[in-house]
Design a protein around this nucleic acid. Structure first.
Lengths: 188, 188, 188, 188
DNA sequence: GATGAATGAGAGTTCATTCAT
DNA sequence: TATGAATGAACTCTCATTCAT
């Protein structure tokens, strides 16, 4: 693995566990098995590490969603796909999910360039819903708000997991949420 | 106002704006117009200020919800009442809502005694939903998960507000969410 | 003595001996018998210490010169007075003289506010010379350049002293310089 | 040009502009278009670069002065020649003049081997003056002190130039200084 | 010889906490 | 009780130097 990625991974682990402020450059260097100075060969500042994590990880998600737009699927299957993609990501790399949830406020505080990526998920969900409305599969509704509900649910289960480390009920929770969405949204 | 409350209020203002770590005891003392040393006459540590904020503010909410249990109302009106109570709190004391959202992760990190209060809202919502099921007003569902969805939505609108300072659409968002809940949950 | 002056004096001692860059805040705090943090209760940065030294010490000299302007003396006695005042200052506080000589380049590099004080000695000497010309005690000459020669000589003896710590010949050197000023070098 | 001289020239440029401490090996390597490691193939340390600059550049001056001793000229023309040689050097390679002035204190601090070269100019001027005395062209005086006055003047005009980058008046200043040397200041 | 990534001691600065007044 | 100067460990970041390639 590249040094940059070693530093990124060490940072992810520590920021997920201790938070951005408690993840000191000293701890990060030890966790990454490099010297402190090496961090600054790859990142101009500690803040830049967080920005880089957001940049690369949100891009992965964005790419997946964007690709999904081209799939020929029902709105419901797409939304379900997004929820399950998140679950899968959370299982694969739980620390990243934790960080994206708990440190995004810092992206705002420090006006990071990765900030723009945070809004893209909502836009894609909105698009999917709008298409459902256009195809008269969904009743008329405010797609931005339904989109907010969906991403709020994603954050809720991420937080639930982050504080309990218990995945077992998440799959079930997603099903329950989808049922709610279906019953609540589909045109009769 | 008591010195303790002056310190608490100053802390709320600064933590909401800058985050827990950037709200230094020095800034807090200046904002509260007391000496730094005075802070330590009322709080054993900076962490304890945050804990106290959670303790007192969550108690207020808890008291309202608890009181609500005794009201003779439909489940739907109660849930709607909770959402609107939140909106009203957010309008009245936006900084407190911001902090409860963005700093609750620190309650977990530092294993604060106020931690237990965070789970109580969910329990009360669950109770309301369970009553709805018992009265056959709501279809059979997992109350814990629906409760999670509701508190997730609350957090989502709080975050939306915290980063945009725009309240105008929140009322409308709550209505849209309630419609979704009703359509999705009521027994046919 | 005030803490601020203790820190200033410790800084003067170390900067004179080791130079501005080798005089670390850590060494300064130890020399001043205070904690590092205390330095920052009185100065906003290390640079500000140097600026403060220049500010206060150059002001002392400026005050002396300015006062001298009101004395009813021959131009020659005034110049002689300035040279001897410098000698006396150098004997009393050799480190300050060293710093003013060797670190003034940093005042330029960092564009310190004390910068303006450096030019005032030259102006006062120029005034004295101009008065001598007006009174026809001095032949027509470029006062700015003669002033440059005089302050250049002051720096030269300061540097000589700074590297040898030998004062014995300075008094004699001043006399020789004054004779030169008066008579020139050519054999008559 | 040899690699060693490329590094030397880059160092001269950066030290003149930023000072010895702000001229980092990293910046020097970039300015010289070599790798940092290459610097250490030619110099044992950063300090050694400064020492080498002093060594080679002062040698050039020393060679010129030494050669001058053999010229059959009046003491006054020789001194004038030295001053004008300096002016010419300053015009040709201003950065070197700046460094020799502002960083010579470091030669003392680090006890560099080039230190000995700094005293040689004074010795040569002293020789010239002594010869003038012997030939009864100059009145009896302390040659070491007159020599100090002359090199002090050289430093003064170099500093004036270093902080203003203005050469225009230097030639005139040299003339005024020479006149002073010859005639003195008093009205006849 | 030339490279430049890696190093880590050490720099300036911050800040929660203490305690004499 | 209230104060705020003093504290020093701990922070982020720098940079002269090394060494495997």
């Amino acid at each position: 693995m590249s040094k940059k990625d070693m530093i990124k991974d060490a940072s992810i682990k520590l920021i997920a566990r201790d938070g951005y402020f408690n993840a000191t450059t000293d701890k990060i260097s030890k966790e990454a098995s490099v010297a402190v100075g090496t961090i600054y060969n790859y990142f101009s500042s500690k803040e830049e590490i967080l920005n880089y994590i957001f940049d690369t990880e949100l891009q992965k998600r964005y790419d997946f969603y964007n690709n999904m737009k081209n799939w020929h699927m029902d709105w419901f299957l797409k939304i379900n796909g997004i929820l399950n993609f998140h679950l899968q990501e959370m299982r694969k790399e739980p620390d990243i999910s934790k960080i994206i949830l708990s440190e995004k406020i810092n992206a705002h505080r420090y006006n990071m360039s990765s900030l723009i990526k945070f809004s893209q998920l909502s836009l894609i969900i909105s698009d999917i819903l709008q298409q459902g409305i256009n195809e008269e599969k969904i009743r008329s509704c405010d797609v931005k708000i339904i989109s907010l509900i969906i991403s709020g649910f994603l954050d809720a289960i991420t937080y639930e997991f982050a504080t309990t480390d218990d995945f077992d009920n998440i799959e079930y929770a997603i099903d329950e949420f989808c049922t709610l969405l279906k019953n609540g949204l589909v045109t009769l």
